[in-house]
């Protein structure tokens, strides 16, 4: 009896202490993430509004984003991301459709999806060098074309400018599109087409009235994801473009490496914040469209 009485309050008091102890188990994770993810993120956000010398609130850095050369860099970044996302989305969707018509568990489909998974991760210095070896000035394809009387660079070398970057980016955009769009295509049931045909519809009407509208949110969402993917890419462009800083990530590189000289320590942070804002808007739209896709084709 005495034991039970002594036990009871202890257990009641034990509960909150136990939850505190349980929280203790997550301390390493939260500490690590705070130092290496939350603090850097806040550094960018706060730094974007901090004057040079490290103190005082200022809008000067953010206002400097409207300088002509930065606006132009953002414009080029958005053009590059949008064009590579559009090309990647259209070509990737066609490729995904070609795969859907194949056997679902067949070797072909498994092989192509596996390859797409790998190629979507392929970027950076190695990708830049792959294209230098292909259509660089002494690349495989360039030399072959020149032997046959065609010079791809007759009107100037475009590989190190936006058209070249767009071409190189499609190399990882198309596979990414295949990966993210394939599940949506799988969600289209053959019964819908059968119902459509049995009600007297033709193929054109099926694509414009049934499958098209059903797939539209998935297609748009995937395109946005591709846009964000291209917009955030740095390494490929850095390895390819050594002169000038046409796009925002390269402008940030310039700001990082010359911040001591110019005394514009926080302009880089303002540009970084601008990038985060663009990516956040795009990703929010993406997740909204993703919800609609899950509702219609899940």
């Amino acid at each position: 009896m005495a034991e039970i009485v002594a036990d009871a309050p202890q257990r009641v008091a034990g509960r909150p202490r136990l939850r505190g102890a349980a929280l203790f188990g997550t301390v390493p994770f939260f500490a690590f993430v705070t130092i290496f993810l939350v603090v850097p993120t806040l550094t960018v956000v706060i730094g974007a509004f901090t004057g040079d010398g490290g103190r005082g609130f200022t809008l000067a850095n953010v206002r400097a984003l409207t300088d002509d050369y930065i606006v132009a860099a953002f414009g080029r970044s958005i053009t590059l991301s949008a064009s590579s996302a559009l090309i990647g989305a259209v070509v990737g969707a066609i490729l995904a459709y070609a795969l859907v018509t194949a056997k679902p568990d067949g070797l072909l489909r498994r092989l192509v999806t596996a390859a797409a998974g790998v190629l979507a991760q392929f970027g950076g210095v190695t990708l830049a060098f792959a294209f230098l070896a292909t259509i660089g000035l002494s690349g495989f394809v360039t030399l072959w074309l020149q032997e046959h009387g065609l010079d791809p660079y007759a009107n100037g070398v475009w590989l190190f400018e936006l058209p070249g970057l767009t071409l190189v980016y499609t190399y990882f955009q198309i596979p990414l599109m295949v990966i993210v769009f394939l599940p949506a295509l799988d969600g289209i049931r053959p019964q819908w087409r059968e119902a459509h045909v049995s009600l007297g519809g033709n193929t054109w009407q099926y694509w414009t009235r049934v499958a098209g509208p059903l797939l539209a949110p998935a297609f748009l969402g995937s395109t946005l994801l591709l846009f964000a993917n291209a917009f955030s890419a740095y390494a490929t462009a850095a390895a390819l473009v050594s002169q000038g800083s046409p796009i925002v990530p390269l402008q940030i590189r310039g700001a990082l490496s010359s911040e001591v000289v110019l005394g514009q320590a926080n302009l880089g942070k303002a540009m970084a914040l601008g990038m985060v804002v663009v990516v956040a808007v795009v990703m929010t739209l993406y997740s909204l469209l993703q919800k609609r896709t899950a509702k219609w084709l899940g």
Binding site: T26, F29, V33, I35, F36, L37, V38, V39, P40, T41, L42, T43, V44, G47, A228, F231, S232, A233, Y234, A235, P249, I252, R253, L256, G268, K269, A272, L273, M275, V276, V279, A280, M283
Partner: peptide, 24 residues
């Protein structure tokens, strides 16, 4: 919360992370 923190790096481009990581 854990899921949010783990997926957060997806929306932060590496080049932006570098800017914040430099002082760390």
């Amino acid at each position: 919360l854990v899921e949010f923190l783990c997926l957060l790096p997806l929306t932060i481009p590496a080049i932006v992370l570098v800017v914040g990581l430099a002082p760390v």
